[in-house]
Amino acid sequence: MDRNSDTIFKIENLFVKIPTRQGTVHAVNGITLSIEKGQTLGLVGESGCGKTVSCLTALGLQKKHFRVKGKTCLNHREIHMLTPSEKRRVLGKQVGFIMQNPMQAFNPLITIEEHFRETIRSHKKASLSEVRKSANDLLQKVGLAGYEKILHQYPIQLSGGMLQRVMIALALILKPRLLIADEPTTALDTTLQSQIVKLFKKLKKNSDISILLISHDVDMIASIADKISVMYAGYIVEQGPTEEVISRPLHPYTKGLLLSRPRFSKERLHTIPGHPPSLLNLADGCPFYQRCFSSGPLCPSFSMDLQHCGNGHFVSCAYIDKSFDKHKVQEHGSPRDTVNF
């Protein structure tokens, strides 16, 4: 491990298998990520591909029955080596976590202010007026200014969008060095989404906070992140600087993903044929090959190792095709699989 680098958060070769009654769910299959100080990494992938499980497990917050392999370092310290009380002091203080479902992430019996008080006082002494002041400051920053009442309200009295923003404020209140945002815009309508995106951009500009931004929305990720990791069925299939990945996608899945974005054009919207594979008893080899337009005989036994293709761009594909020819992609999607916009 390079102690001199500015890597603040690193996940190395993380595997998560979930035993269930029907069999083993291969939720995460050896992902590696690293985030440098001040950098924003976007983790993009369809829902169910293992994004939430990855980052919760990386922080040691997985459910008890999950089988985990791999290691995570935060500030060059391995998280799994920390004692429970050390880990507790790191969470919230050094890592802020924005959870996926804001509607379920608040205790229905206590007010928003009590949530703030609890988070702050778990890490430092603070008087009630200090708590109120810092909570109000942050609520203002997340666009909830003028809602003084919020602090005294119960979670059910707020809308999903408001709770989402309260959640962001809660994650930021102790000025963490790393912010993990799990689908922070999914619960919001479009205008609020752009507001949150602006907030993240401002946060990036005004502080040296590192952000792990998780979403299924490529455009949102592309507009904020410095680096993108594309996740599919528990694998990272492509990784690289945002510009690189967006303009020169190498993995067929990424190509499909980029083509399936609505861009308000008259073009037909591309969809990737088929369905994402079930992670239950996932077979070896490339999980995408049944849906892939350029698959070959090597795919079913491909090791899914990432290969460097220059410019910090990594991809795991047996047949790397450097051209991003959307007509070629569309030829392969049958007419049934395309939607007219």
Binding site: L56, M99, A105, I110, T119
Partner: peptide, 27 residues
């Protein structure tokens, strides 16, 4: 214990005794 708001409390570093007293018992 498996609910999201308890996870949220753990994620923000709330001590587990406090979680028991303020999140689990009242609920």
């Amino acid at each position: 214990r498996e609910s999201n708001f308890v996870l949220a409390a753990r994620v923000s570093g709330v001590p587990s005794f406090h979680i028991l007293l303020h999140h689990i018992l009242p609920n």
